[in-house]
């Protein structure tokens, strides 16, 4: 084969590898860099490398502020996830299965919340709570987080329900199942992947949220608000760095674990990896 032809063949491949590499570096480079410097024995994040240490990690572990904030965030995100999952699934059922007047409008209202900036929702929440004279606390944070995660769950679970063949529901009823039995044995197992995806996103959104927590929170801080607070002193940087690395790693492991579980589940049902990917991307769509 002539050289020009060989280059012609290899070029697209090389280009796509190059482009993918670039995207990966832009996406994960900064995070990896932070993780790397959390092991650097220096209070400034820059070269030269002063030596390997796990000092920042033990400091973070002994930092009451960090531990309390992480605890708060885990609690807030857990409550938000469960609440928005229940409310969102009920709403999705109504929006996809029960015909009523104005259904498109109601569905549209749910979706529109997703495009309102969190900052504005946070400020709106602050004004709202001060108007009704409700003291700001973790509870107000939870309420406002549900405002944004609920429509997210509705979007994800509705997508799952729309893809779900309604004749399966009829078949179950035809076999004598009650509405509840049909839900329990047919619908829930079928939309489990959508529910799992919705739960992951709701948890992550709540856990990582800064704007809403910042405006509607009281004295008790969530992790992102704590980070913002302590970062005003640059000497705290390495501790924040270490704590963030642990949190990021935990989240990544959680998502990967769930993804792997779903893959196993579809495999067992005779589906392919493609089906699993389809379920998750379908859920996100």
């Amino acid at each position: 084969m002539p050289l020009s032809r060989r280059i012609q063949r290899a070029l697209p491949n090389a280009l796509s590898i190059g482009l993918t590499g670039l995207v990966m570096v832009i996406l994960f480079g900064p995070v990896l860099l932070l993780a790397l410097f959390s092991f650097n024995d220096s209070t400034v994040i820059s070269l030269p490398w002063e030596g390997f240490t796990t000092r920042w990690y033990s400091e973070a572990l002994n930092d009451d502020g960090a531990m309390t904030a992480i605890g708060n965030s885990v609690m807030v995100a857990s409550i938000v996830t469960v609440a928005s999952l229940i409310l969102g699934t009920l709403a999705s059922w109504g929006l996809t299965r029960i015909p009523f007047r104005g259904r498109p409008l109601v569905a549209g209202v749910h979706g529109s919340v997703l495009v309102v900036p969190w900052l504005i929702i946070g400020v709106a929440g602050l004004i709202f709570f001060s108007q009704i004279e409700m003291a700001l606390s973790l509870q107000t944070i939870i309420l406002m987080h549900i405002v944004v995660t609920f429509p997210l769950v509705v979007a994800v679970v509705s997508a799952g329900l729309i893809r779900f063949d309604p004749s399966l529901e009829e078949a179950a009823i035809d076999m004598g199942a009650s509405q509840l039995q049909m839900m329990r044995y047919i619908v829930l197992p079928q939309i489990a992947p959508s529910l799992a995806a919705a739960a992951i996103f709701a948890f992550a959104w709540s856990f990582n949220n800064f704007e809403i927590s910042f405006f509607t929170g009281g004295f008790e801080q969530t992790f992102p608000v704590w980070v913002y607070g302590v970062l005003r002193h640059s000497s705290n940087l390495p501790v924040v760095n270490a704590a963030s690395t642990v949190i990021a790693l935990a989240q990544v492991l959680l998502v990967f674990g769930l993804w792997y579980g779903m893959k196993l589940m579809t495999r067992r049902r005779g589906g392919s990896d493609h089906d699993a990917a389809e379920m998750i991307t379908g859920a996100v769509r």
């Binding site: 004749s167 078949a171 076999m175 199942a177 044995y185 079928q190």
Partner: peptide, 27 residues
């Protein structure tokens, strides 16, 4: 429909995908 003593075979079969053949028949 659940109280009528008739059963339906659907155009697209409507088999429960998360159940085995036996579980489907058993339902």
């Amino acid at each position: 429909p659940k109280k009528r003593n008739v059963n339906m075979v659907f155009q697209n079969y409507a088999l429960f995908p998360h159940m085995t053949v036996r579980e489907n028949v058993e339902f």
